[in-house]
Amino acid sequence: MSRPITASLNLEALRQNLQIIRRAASGARVWSVVKANAYGHGLDRVWSALGATDGFALLNLEEAILLRERGWKGPILMLEGFFHADELELFDKYRLTTSLHSNWQVKALASAKLHDPIDVYLKMNSGMNRLGFAPERVHSIWQQLRAIPNVGELTLMAHFADAEKPDGIIEPMKRIEQAAEGLACRRSLANSAATLWHPETHFDWVRPGIILYGASPSGQWQDIAASGLKPVMTLKSEIIGIQTLHAGACVGYGSRFRAQGEQRIGIVAGGYADGYPRHAPDGTPVLVEGVKTGIVGTVSMDMLAVDLTPCPQAGIGSPVELWGEEIRIDDVAAASGTVGYELMCALAPRVPVVTL
């Protein structure tokens, strides 16, 4: 019998989340962002539940080819474009939309031998300073691309570093508007936070990522609690051992937790080798038999300990939700000093995944 830890994926929640996003950005088309193996959910498991999307956005050629082989005929946007010029042969074969963020990519596309033009997203650096052309270069690059026969439909693309903040798009939007002045161009600007909270950024295409999977782009679940978005992934396990501590007894490596009095704890089959954060502190929320409690002691590779004081009825085999429908992944992440994105993507291959 396998270990009791499992991740379950609620595909109906994924479908509903996409519809909520459509309503939030009703005037725009939707790129469903499925990079990082669909944020750890498994692209091959979930893509069909997003079949009502307008397009998929991702990074890896292998994942783009997988979508084509599974039968997806709609647009696919490669968010970082091609990494080597010889990849353009596959972009042509599989009809992929490329982003362009560097001079060498423009030259490579101009020199490529393609069967048909490919669509291009011109990436502008709006202040995040990762990828993209400086605003003052957008006009000249745009005109340069317009003259290249290999370029099909052209769209201006940018990204926001602080869209979860009420004023987080003000300065970037000024730069974008100045750069795009005089250009009759399609635009794709809005990430998850901008899609939810800044309708003025929606334009032609929005690019929701984390909200598709039911977590908050701000890292605070309360910020999306009224949106109707639901968690897609639930990580569950069981109690496999019980210990009764006396005052002064410790739990786990490093003896981080010390009982103040007699205390009953449960040992759960789940640890950092499954994707649970090793640095989660005492009190990180967990659900045992429907009762909220917290972990105690340092998370081990294969196990973690939970306080059973609030749930004295719990015993061997009692169900434990580590995150999901009741224990929000954002809350686990916030307690652990990280974000829900990281926890989703860190789900280990050894954890069995079931779809509902």
Rank of each mutant, 00 (worst) to 15 (best):
M1H: 09
L14Y: 13
S26W: 14
A28H: 01
V33C: 04
V34W: 01
V34H: 00
N37L: 08
Y39G: 11
Y39L: 14
L43A: 11
S48P: 00
G51F: 01
A52I: 10
T53Y: 04
L61S: 02
L61P: 01
E62N: 15
L67Q: 02
E69V: 04
K73L: 10
M78S: 07
L79P: 01
E80L: 11
F82H: 07
D86P: 00
E89R: 11
E89C: 06
F91C: 09
D92R: 00
K93S: 09
Y94L: 05
T97R: 09
T97W: 01
L100Y: 10
W104R: 10
Q105A: 09
K107Y: 12
L109T: 15
K123W: 08
M124Y: 10
M128T: 03
M128C: 11
L131I: 14
F133D: 07
S140R: 13
W142K: 04
A158G: 07
K165C: 14
I169W: 11
M173A: 08
Q178E: 06
S192Q: 00
A194M: 02
W197E: 12
W197N: 15
W197V: 12
E200D: 14
E200S: 15
T201N: 03
D204G: 05
V206K: 09
V206Y: 07
V206D: 01
I211T: 11
I211L: 06
I211V: 12
G214D: 07
P217G: 03
G219D: 08
Q220P: 00
Q222A: 14
A225S: 14
A225Q: 13
G228K: 05
K236M: 10
E238W: 07
I239K: 02
T244E: 07
H246P: 04
A247K: 15
S255N: 15
R258H: 09
Q260W: 05
I265H: 10
G266Q: 00
G271H: 11
Y272V: 05
Y272D: 04
D282P: 05
G283S: 05
P285F: 08
P285V: 08
V286P: 02
V286F: 05
V291Y: 03
T293M: 02
G297D: 01
M303P: 08
D307C: 05
L308R: 04
P310D: 11
Q313P: 00
I316T: 10
I316L: 06
P319H: 14
P319N: 14
L322G: 13
E325F: 08
E326F: 10
V332H: 08
G340V: 09
L347W: 00
L347I: 14
P349K: 01
L356S: 10
